[in-house]
Nucleic acid binder design. Structure first.
Length: 475
RNA sequence: GGCGCUGUAGCCAAGCGGUCUAAGGCGAAGGUCUGCAAAACCUUUAUUCGUCGGUUCGAAUCCGACCGGCGCCUCCA
């Protein structure tokens, strides 16, 4: 039984989708004004793991992620880069897809864009206006927070306490400082759309209300995003959607913890700002995914080089096993024994861990335990035990593909991916290995070691065993 | 000021009332194997869970106080 911590109720709840086995899931996507950073990557990867686990459980997940392509920051960027806002959006949407592709984040079913839903947005604002939740002040339309009874229920804030807070921007046009923009009047030179209130563009929050209900229904199962979106973004979405649709907006709210860099907030001004593509030049996607999966998705997480390097090392242990499995399977041994290994027991543990609010850290621990157990069996066989047949390796591989690959994306059995990715000439490597073998047979160890060194510089590490020499690509 | 998260070995991090003299990863030390190198395996590395009290037959786990870290309350994953 899957339990999920729901920000709305502040407790773990049994997950009961509205229309099983279908699950509707919406994750707040990027505002496409720059490359996304490693903190964004945590949200994308965490939601990817959650989605894949739900699919593993047999749910049919409809996954929607919005792309915010009209916004102040995009306008600002277009001025800086001296292009149009559309060009800015297009450029960073392209970069977004490249980066999530490298991070092996599965594609959403739909990536709705704000600019593609202008009529729907206008319709929803009109509806809010008709129902008395919105007011127009000279082309700027605001949401009247005081009219919505449940305001603050997600973030646990109270309107009067918020009003007492000192950090709310003053705006003469608003009835209440907490009221937020539904429609912004266009300023000179800004992109605009025609509307009943004049030329303008939508406020930030309205697009998510509109696009989520359009693609997932007026009430849907899961809405996820970064911790910082709880207030005001998600609070405002609830206010808009529930006022307009007169039914609950979302059943389960999930929020991802923040990523700190060396215990401080990541920010451009502090110079500790890392884009995901920067990090990907130094570390593998698997290592990044493993690093995130080793912690609880809701908690804060510290990030630095040393920690990612540790994850990369841990990953090697897993990678060595996949190499071994691939090699053994290629031999296709039919005689020999199938050692006893209770795979189901490991799988049950993973399920138990993941069912408890996606305890990925514990699930990953099970995968490492499993790896150790398999290595132990192989070591026993190698040191004079009985030969192991392909059946065993097939079972092991199938399990890891279901879990380590299928849910977490931290292993890769497709060895060619690594080779082609690193631009390795397999034929040349093989020739060198043969040459080295010859040298070894002649006890010319100086030459053998020289070849080893040369290949190492090409990023290829040799490994000798009884059955011959194999190699792997190292970063 | 309000809301929320968090404090477990050298580092990261699970565990949230008994199976805990506390998973897993990294690091470190020793060993097996080995021409070398690596991998892998074996052993060791927290009698203790920020501090002090309380509840309980029993607490890292619940309650209270205190000390510390972080976030949100303004755009932000």
């Amino acid at each position: 039984m899957l339990k999920i911590y729901n920000t709305l109720t502040k407790q773990k709840e049994e997950f009961k989708p509205i229309d099983p086995p279908n699950v509707s899931m919406y994750v707040c996507g990027p505002t496409v004004y720059d490359f996304f950073h490693i903190g964004n990557a945590r949200s994308f990867i965490s939601s990817d793991i959650i989605r894949k686990y739900l699919e593993y459980k047999g749910y049919n997940v409809k996954f929607v992620m919005n792309l915010t392509d009209v916004d102040d920051k995009i306008i600002k960027k277009s001025i800086e880069e001296k292009t149009g806002t559309e060009q800015v959006a297009e450029k960073y949407i392209g970069a977004f897809f490249q980066d999530i592709g490298k991070l092996t984040v599965a594609k959403a079913d739909i990536y709705p864009k704000a600019t593609g839903h202008m009529q729907d947005i206008i319709d929803m604002i009109k509806e809010l206006e008709q129902k008395g939740f919105a007011y127009n002040v000279d082309g700027n339309v605001f949401y009247d927070v005081a009219k919505f009874k449940g305001y603050g229920k997600l973030s646990g804030k109270k309107i009067d306490e918020l009003e007492a807070g000192a950090r709310i921007e003053k705006n003469e046009e608003k009835k209440n400082p907490l009221d937020f923009s539904l429609w912004k009047k266009a300023k000179e030179g800004e992109p605009y759309w025609d509307s009943p209130w004049g030329k303008g563009r939508p406020g930030w929050h309205i697009e998510c209300s509109v696009m989520s209900s359009k693609h997932l229904g007026k009430t849907f199962d899961i809405h996820a995003g970064g911790n910082d979106l709880i207030f005001p973004h998600h609070e405002n979405e609830i206010a808009q959607s529930e006022a307009a649709n007169e039914q609950p907006f979302v059943k389960y709210w999930l929020h991802f913890g923040f990523l700190n860099i060396d215990n401080t907030k990541m920010s451009k001004s502090l110079g500790n700002f890392f884009t995901a593509r920067d990090i990907l030049t130094k570390y593998s996607a698997e290592a990044i995914r493993l690093f995130f999966a080793q912690a609880y998705y809701r908690g804060p997480l510290n990030f630095n080089d040393e920690l990612l390097a540790a994850a990369e090392k841990g990953l090697e242990k897993l990678g060595n096993l996949t190499d071994t499995i691939n090699q053994e399977l290629s031999k296709n041994i039919t005689e020999g024994v199938t050692p006893e290994l209770d795979i189901k027991q490991f799988e049950d543990k993973i399920i138990a861990a993941m069912d408890d609010d996606f305890n990925t850290a514990q699930a990953i621990a099970v995968i490492f335990d499993f790896t150790k157990e398999v290595n132990r069996i192989i070591a026993k066989s190698a040191s004079g035990g009985e030969n192991i047949n392909a059946e065993f390796y097939k079972n092991v591989k199938a399990f890891l593909e279901r879990t380590a690959v299928g849910i977490f994306g931290i292993m890769n059995f497709n060895a060619d991916d690594n080779l082609s990715g690193a631009g390795i000439d397999v034929e040349h490597i093989q020739q060198m290995i043969d040459k080295r073998l010859e040298a070894k047979n002649e006890k010319n160890y100086a030459l053998a070691d020289k070849i080893r060194e040369e290949l190492k510089e090409l990023g290829v590490e040799l490994k000798d065993s009884k059955e011959g020499t194999t190699f792997k690509v190292v970063k």
